[in-house]
């Protein structure tokens, strides 16, 4: 019997359990659209504090470039994990930033006002500066993406290595599209 062909309706099974996190893979377009802020910044300092029952590490960034979100010369990003007094929590796979590290961040500010990285590490692009004039941005591939029901376009996975200029252009394209 010939297999009846039908449109590929797949349950949203693009879950990538990391050692400590189960992620829903986001396309580049998702990253831009669902983030409330997109910045290029340089890490200044980090400290930990307990909010409720979770310890968060707050990293302060100097904002070098902004594509989306509220204005400001600095931004504070919260990620779960850290040490406060004698209490310590660690969550593997959570991005950590060293002072001086330059990154492009896709950020999400929730109802609490706390700003976190969208999609955990999916929203972090390392800025790599070589001898040439253009910096590169690198984000490791997050694996395959599946079609989700109801979406008009395929949600693709990509290895993201490009110049900073190319990333900036792609962000602007999606932002423009969302405005229409």
């Amino acid at each position: 019997m010939r297999v009846v062909r039908r449109s590929l309706l797949l349950i949203l099974a693009s879950l990538v359990p990391a050692a400590a996190a189960t992620l829903e893979r986001l396309s580049f377009e998702d990253l831009v659209t669902r983030s409330t802020g997109i910045v290029r910044g340089r890490a200044i300092s980090s400290s930990a504090s307990q909010i409720g029952s979770t310890i968060y590490t707050r990293t302060r960034f100097e904002v070098l470039e902004r594509w989306k979100g509220a204005e400001g010369t600095q931004i504070e990003v919260f990620e779960p994990g850290g040490t406060v007094g004698r209490s310590s929590q660690s969550y593997s796979g959570v991005p950590r930033f060293e002072p001086g590290q330059e990154v492009v961040l896709f950020l999400w500010t929730g109802p609490s006002g706390r700003t976190q990285v969208t999609g955990l590490s999916q929203g972090v692009f390392q800025v790599v500066r070589g001898d040439g004039p253009d910096a590169r941005v690198v984000r490791k591939p997050s694996g395959e993406i599946l079609l989700a029901p109801g979406l008009g376009a395929p949600v693709r996975d990509e290895e993201l290595v490009m110049s900073l200029g190319q990333l900036s252009a792609r962000i602007r394209v999606v932002l423009e599209k969302n405005k229409r």
């Binding site: 879950l15 990391a18 050692a19 400590a20 996190a21 189960t22 992620l23 829903e24 893979r25 986001l26 998702d30 990253l31 669902r34 983030s35 409720g52 979770t54 779960p80 994990g81 209490s87 310590s88 929590q89 660690s90 969550y91 593997s92 796979g93 959570v94 999400w108 929730g110 109802p111 609490s112 706390r114 976190q116 990285v117 969208t118 999609g119 955990l120 999916q122 929203g123």
Partner: peptide, 15 residues
């Protein structure tokens, strides 16, 4: 907890 888009959950030993 308030988790950003793209994060379903996380778990493991913490202390």
């Amino acid at each position: 907890e308030e988790l950003p888009p793209g994060v379903v959950g996380m778990g493991g030993p913490v202390t």
